[in-house]
């Protein structure tokens, strides 16, 4: 068996040493995949921590929604309490309004005059025929300063008086009847 040997003093530039090129390639590949792995871990970690962060934000927002919804309900309740008739009554009393009774009802007339009337006094409200009459007969202007007040028509005044007299008598009758019943 003949062995071929290369002369040691002769350079062989055509031949590359294979032993040097192979580990580099593997090394680079290892490095590359290593980098992918590291980046992957890094990304995964980042995702994990950001998901936790989002979870925290989410839970905070949920709590906030809950709180706002409860607050909304509380405010609705407060509004309803404030609008309840008993509270309105209290508020009205505070600002000086009083409960409506027969004695404090003010009946406004069409001609702008006003006066305190009892609800049983029907003349002002129930006899509309009297009003046009009063309006068509305005009082004559007087030279007297004392007469500057708006003149009241005679007829309604009389009927009012009559009505009040009639009412008084009926009240008296009632009282006497009540006494007899007792």
């Amino acid at each position: 068996m003949r062995k071929r040997t290369l002369p040691q003093n002769k350079s062989n530039k055509r031949h590359k040493r294979e032993s040097n090129s192979i580990p580099w390639r593997y090394g680079l590949m290892t490095l590359f995949f290593g980098l992918i792995l590291v980046v992957g871990f890094f990304l995964a970690a980042r995702q994990h921590f950001s998901s936790i962060e989002f979870g925290m934000k989410n839970s905070k927002l949920r709590r906030q929604i809950d709180e706002l919804e409860s607050e909304k309900r509380r405010l609705i309740l407060e509004k309803e309490i404030a609008l309840s008739p008993s509270e309105i009554k209290k508020a009205a009393k505070k600002i000086g309004l009083t409960t409506m009774t027969a004695s404090n009802i003010e009946v406004y007339r069409n001609n702008g005059q006003s006066g305190v009337k009892s609800p049983t006094d029907k003349n002002a409200a129930t006899k509309p025929s009297e009003k046009p009459e009063a309006e068509t007969k305005p009082a004559q202007p007087s030279a007297n300063k004392a007469d500057d007040k708006p003149a009241k028509p005679d007829k309604p005044a009389k009927t009012e008086k009559k009505a009040s007299d009639a009412k008084k008598t009926s009240d008296q009758k009632e009282k006497t009847q009540a006494k007899t019943v007792k």
């Binding site: 809950d66 409860s70 309900r73 509380r74 609705i76 309740l77 309803e80 609008l83």
Partner: peptide, 8 residues
């Protein structure tokens, strides 16, 4: 109009 309601 709410006549009865619950709050947290």
């Amino acid at each position: 109009r709410p006549l009865a309601m619950s709050v947290k």
